[in-house]
Amino acid sequence: MNMPLAKAKVGQRAIIKSISGNEKIRNFLFTLGCCEGEEITLISALGGNYIVNIKDSRYAIDKRMANAIELVEAG
């Protein structure tokens, strides 16, 4: 089942299916290891901000970015 990161459940581990948005941001996310096929976990959803785990690090992202990241369930 596909869904944007903004709609994911807290604590849910998922695989990134696609990232929309402009090239520059996508490239930046890529260097963090945030790209298609990689694992991402939503750690907390705090109003308009989302805390995620990518590889071994935590990042806070805003709603616009959380909506641009499309997920599929892991497994």
């Binding site: 604590g11 750690i43 907390s44 705090l46 109003g47 805390i51 935590r58």
Partner: peptide, 21 residues
């Protein structure tokens, strides 16, 4: 497992919360 919820995450839920933060 880096995706486990840690103490740091629990603190963040309060400290980075829209109102409480």
């Amino acid at each position: 497992d880096p995706s486990q919820i840690t103490l740091s995450d629990k603190i963040d839920r309060i400290v980075a919360h829209p109102v409480a933060g």
